[in-house]
Amino acid sequence: MSTDSRPYRYGDFPELFWDLQKDVEIDHDNPYVISRVLREGNLNLVRQLVSAETLTRHFDQLVLPDHIRAFWALVIEKLQQRHGANSNS
């Protein structure tokens, strides 16, 4: 997972942010925005808009259905295991 460095605006993703101001830059640290991307976005959109660090930092604040929370909890666990393995090398 990595956030694209391009400054995206809500209007770049009308399928996710139809109700937000189109010309405003996406707030990648906003738990509401992160939750929406995880609930309604595909994997490519998640990769573009949510970094692993941001997901991990805000995960407890996210409003997600149980099945989506369980999936992303597993993703975070795997990322942390991989990070731990890399730091031990």
Rank of each mutant, 00 (worst) to 15 (best):
V24P: 09
P7V: 00
N44I: 12
H58C: 07
F59N: 05
V63W: 04
D27M: 04
E15I: 12
I76A: 00
S5A: 10
L45H: 11
D19H: 14
R47W: 05
N30R: 13
L20G: 04
I68C: 04
N30P: 05
E53L: 03
V33R: 13
N88C: 02
P14S: 08
R36G: 02
E40V: 02
R57K: 15
L38M: 07
Q61P: 03
H67C: 07
L16K: 09
N86P: 09
R57Y: 09
A70S: 08
D4H: 14
S2F: 11
G84R: 15
D60W: 02
A85L: 12
W18V: 10
R39L: 11
V37D: 02
P7H: 07
L49W: 03
L62A: 03
L38Q: 06
L38A: 06
R82M: 04
G41L: 03
L49N: 01
V33L: 02
H58V: 10
N88D: 05
F59I: 09
S5K: 13
L74D: 15
R57E: 03
S5R: 14
P14Y: 03
E40C: 08
R82K: 12
Q21Y: 11
H67G: 06
A52L: 07
H28C: 02
I34Q: 06
D66H: 07
Q61V: 11
F59P: 02
L45K: 15
T56W: 07
L55Q: 12
F71L: 14
R6L: 09
F17L: 06
H28W: 11
L79I: 08
I34F: 00
N86H: 13
G11T: 04
Q21K: 15
A85V: 14
P65V: 10
P65R: 01
Y8C: 03
T54L: 02
G11Y: 01
H83Y: 12
T3W: 09
H58W: 04
A85F: 13
D60A: 06
N88R: 15
R69V: 12
G41W: 00
W18M: 09
T56D: 04
Q21D: 07
G84K: 14
G11L: 06
T3R: 15
D66G: 07
I76C: 01
N42T: 12
L64Q: 08
V24N: 11
P14N: 05
P65T: 10
D27W: 06
V24C: 10
S51Q: 08
K78F: 03
R6E: 03
V33N: 08
F71Q: 10
V75E: 00
